[in-house]
Design a protein around this nucleic acid. Structure first.
Length: 435
DNA sequence: TAAGGATGTGAAGGCGCACT
DNA sequence: AGTGCGCCTTCACATCCTTA
């Protein structure tokens, strides 16, 4: 069976606060630079996006699509030879359900996978009667999660429904400000139709697997990318035939699903508790001793993912069933090494050089030999990647919407020529800022 | 002096909720 | 009852600062 990487939760340019570049061509381009074989389309509920997809994609395998040949040819020159590998698209979308249940307001996001345009259009006709699906690629519906699931199941018996980023405080199944304490309370009689949960950036398998109530669910990871360059920052490893039903089966029974690619959970923006505006960051035990109150403003802090997991956990040691790889985006590693921002021209140029020589980013981060990395990217890069692969990272946790920072080198540790005034200033500012 | 880089802010839809 | 605010996301853009 082929081994491949899939990132199924992303957005199009029809969603709010997303890049204008999010069209099928740029998604295909970046999927190849990252080394992703199957990428979700996102936003299939949006009429403008779905008609663009119908125009630009053709079915490649059962339930998977690829760019039409003329479009594929048009992006080919922009893709390094080392990365050429025609990606597939799966029709996916995210829906935001906001509703009241058992006297509490619930705001829960869900990811939906469908096998073809017919079923997408059928679902869209149903949803259009419930709410406005034209104004946003991620529509907000006043619909109970259970009832959305029912509508989806009625649309196609091949549909797959995944609660999205289940721990984020504001919009998720287990969210401290929005969700439930158990899955049955959310989906009731239809709970058996849920087979997989998306864990989000701020949690990883060792955290999730402290909850016995999650034992019967597969954990999946996706990027929720709002720009092409963020594709695959979290993603899934499949070892199945390349088609829709095989992938859905793997996510249903776990066979052929070999693991996930993860952020270090501390990098996620809701890992710890606190208030971003008050610059207060608290560990769960601190939050509890302060009775959930922010010492600066006196209001309730935003309770993060680590705290929620801790509250609902019923084990001391995680029961881990699948492999997972904790990675740092390559531009962030280069940013630390070279002492400048991850989106600067310098980092972009080095990034392009690296994938040109070594292959797709995820290959460089996970599999490429350290010797080759050293030859192309220098000794600091190979040292950095070696440390990342062995979990030897310095973690500064994110909280209340602020991303954490994962570093690989102590201050002063980097040798010449990179250790210079700019880089130490930069690190100092970043550290100071975050508290 | 120009280019590059850092930083701050506005943008979007829909909903609940606090407040008047 | 009605109004306004805050929340989701993070990009895109404008502006200011730094460096060669």
């Amino acid at each position: 069976m082929p081994k491949f990487i899939a990132d199924l939760h992303i957005h199009s340019r029809f969603s709010r606060a997303t890049s204008k570049n999010l069209d099928p061509e740029h998604l295909a381009l970046w999927a190849q630079k990252k080394g992703i074989k199957v990428v979700g389309t996102g936003d299939f509920t949006h009429p403008g996006w779905i008609s663009e997809l119908q125009e630009k994609l053709i079915e490649a395998e059962q339930g998977l699509f690829r760019l039409k040949p003329d479009l594929a040819a048009s992006i080919k020159p922009a893709i390094p030879d080392s990365c050429q590998d025609s990606p597939r698209f799966m029709l996916t979308s995210e829906i935001s359900c906001i509703y009241k249940k058992n006297d509490k307001t619930r705001k829960v996001h869900h990811l939906i996978l469908l096998p073809g345009f017919d079923s997408v259009l059928k679902l869209n006709r149903r949803l259009e009667q419930i709410g406005n699906i034209r104004s946003d690629g991620r529509p907000i519906l006043g619909l109970d999660s259970r009832n959305l699931l029912e509508v989806v199941l009625e649309t196609s018996d091949r549909a797959f429904f995944i609660p999205a980023h289940v721990w984020t405080p504001w919009f998720s199944l287990f969210g401290s400000k929005s969700g439930f304490d158990d899955i049955e309370e959310c989906f009731e009689d239809l709970t058996p139709h849920i087979h997989a949960l998306e864990t989000g950036l701020s949690s990883d398998p060792p955290m999730n697997r402290l909850l016995s109530q999650l034992d019967r669910y597969l954990l999946v990871s996706n990027s929720d990318a709002h720009s092409p360059a963020k594709l695959g920052r979290e993603s899934n490893l499949f070892e199945t035939a390349l088609d829709y039903d095989a992938m859905v089966k793997a996510m249903t029974d776990g066979q052929g699903f070999s693991g996930t690619i993860e952020f270090f959970p501390e990098e996620g923006k809701y890992h710890l508790d606190g208030h971003r505006k008050c610059r207060v960051r608290l560990h769960p035990e601190e939050t509890k001793s302060r009775k959930g109150i922010c010492p600066v403003c006196g209001k309730a802090v935003t309770v993060g993912v680590f705290h929620r997991v801790d509250d609902l956990a019923d084990r001391d040691h995680p029961k881990i069933s699948k492999a997972f790889f904790s990675l740092i985006p390559l531009t962030e590693i280069l940013s630390e090494i070279h002492g400048c921002g991850p989106a600067t021209k310098k980092v972009t140029r080095i990034y392009e050089d690296l994938i040109n020589t070594l292959g797709p980013e995820l290959h460089i981060l996970m599999d490429a030999s350290l010797e080759k990395i050293k030859q192309t990217g220098g000794v600091l890069l190979s040292k950095a990647i070696d440390r990342m692969r062995n979990n030897k990272v310095i973690r500064q946790e994110g909280y209340d919407g602020e991303f954490g920072v994962i570093r690989l080198f102590d201050d002063g540790e980097k040798d010449e020529p990179y250790q210079n005034r700019i880089s130490s200033d930069y690190q100092g500012e970043r550290q100071g800022d975050a508290l």
